[in-house]
Design a binder for these strands. Sequence first.
RNA 1: GCCCGCGUAGUUCAACGGAUAGAACAAAAGUUUCCUAAACUUUAGAUCUAGGUUCGAUUCCUAGCGUGGGUACCA
Length: 590
Amino acid sequence: MSIQKILRSATQTALQQLYKVGVENVEFQATRKEFEGDITIVVFSFLRQIKGNPVEIGTQLGNYLKDNVVEVVDFNVVKGFLNLVFSDAYLHTVFSQVFNTEQYGISKQAEEQAIMVEYSSPNTNKPLHLGHIRNNLLGYSVAEILKAAGNKVYKTQIINDRGIHICKSMLAYHKYGNDESPESTGLKGDKLIGNYYVRFNQEYKKQIDKLLEEGISEEKAKKQAPLLLEAQKMLKKWEDGDKEVRLLWEKMNRWVYKGFDSTYKNLGVDFDINYYESDTYLLGKDVVQKGLEKGIFFKKPDGSVWIDLSDDGLDEKIVLRADGTAVYITQDIGTAIQRIKDYPDVKGMVYTVGNEQDYHFKVLFLILKKLGYKWADNLYHLSYGMVDLPEGKMKSREGTVVDADDLMCEMKATARSISQDLGKLEGYTDSEKENLYRMIGMGALKYYILKVDPKKRILFNPKESIDFNGNTGPFIQYTYARIQSLLRRADFDYSQRVNVNIHPKERALIKQLQDFPDVVQNAAQNHSPALIANYTYELVKGFNSFYQSVSIFAAAQEDEKIFRVQLSQAVGNVIQSAFSLLGIEMPDRM
RNA sequence: GCCCGCGUAGUUCAACGGAUAGAACAAAAGUUUCCUAAACUUUAGAUCUAGGUUCGAUUCCUAGCGUGGGUACCA
């Protein structure tokens, strides 16, 4: 039984005896560090049922708990807060559980039913950028957190591999490409294709300007530019299965996927299943047709199909164009249904998509619910804020996009330079060093992004590089490396349980370690890696403070030495577990 | 216009409705004959405004201001 349950039940008994009232809830919080105590009961919340002075009530309750609960050895009351002090014996019991549990806090038993987590979902006409990095890190991390909380998880993405934007880069390549290839240019496939997408837009703009000079209105010019018409023709050909267009499409997509694979690998993310829009874009149409028969959708005079969501506080939304072609949401309806068909054990899905699409997902979930799918209640839009630059949104046309590969490369270079200045890596081979620089650079980047509450936007200033000191990934990695160094030196057996007096710094650490499983559950419920990041930071601060003020190998007693090594190891293990949920690797030295 | 976010030190981020609003960076000062100074210890500095609910509000409600996004056949 957890200590909170014990205290709750004892408190209920005490208040029944003392005041003849039955209280349902007992509110606990961690004792603030400026007061003595390990856990705090908020007495204020009893005042509704017990008329009286909170300090008196707290004192009476404190006395009762001290006398009747063995874990509680002392207490003090400050205003309406009852601070309880735990016995060393209890803390030793807590610690031994942490120390002896493999992967403490990480659930090993997965449930039968699964959650599908979608993230990344790139377009195949340009390389991944900083926005995708946030998306990928978030999605990956949330998937790992859900697993750690005891869920079975499938990671997936929907690759947007068709549509007019894809044809634009294909057309530009076809016209100006001279049969270039990644091999002939030495460019990554996605970069090569991205260049042609940019090229399309340049040429397109030239044509518009020319039309404007001829006195045609801007609106018309945009629609009449020959390049756009050609791209539209190409899309039609693609849909008709034109052999030549399809071959070009396949070739270019292959290049892009190879490029993406390399970026994903460097980023450390992976997927269990890929869905392709080219396979799924027609799926939703059938569903819409059936929904039309059931009266869930309605047809307008021009033939387009709509859903009226005004009863739900939204407005009307189109689900099929007048010409019968699918819109964005049609495809999403189909894809969702297809996924449940493919994986019947999936009970819910998480969509990692930016908050600019909040409305879209509200509508999508509502439509699926109206269509009668019971899993529609378990859909969650993991909506995150945009990554903005100081001057505003990233814009590919203005060349202000922060490229994912470039950024990762810079992070590694910064890590290399800092590390070389410090010069602590004697005995490491060059490849070991390079691997370490990568770990640290990526640690800095990932932590920087994930420590922020997902729904908040991130301001990224490329001129100010991401920190490596303070509340950062490398700070935490450094602490881990220092712990590993301690453990390497501990050439004695420290596996047995010891009962020593617990130092205040140690006491704080044990309580923090105890919290980890709850933090994981909480992070899973809130879909928030930031909670893991913040927890880990606090734990590491606590450890560094302990490390600074308490000597480990020069402890007065042998048992103290053993206990401190154990504590260090437990902290190291929890840090590593926590960071693995963020996708951050831990170095043994740095 | 309407709808949805967000607004906390100079900057970047924290705070289940709880105690004197925490950190980090930047600024100022200190700690290495001692387990890794990417560390530790100090100092200075903030809740957009006005109401309301509550024993208690950064948090919940209302209005305003600022800011970002969406707004029906782009994905």
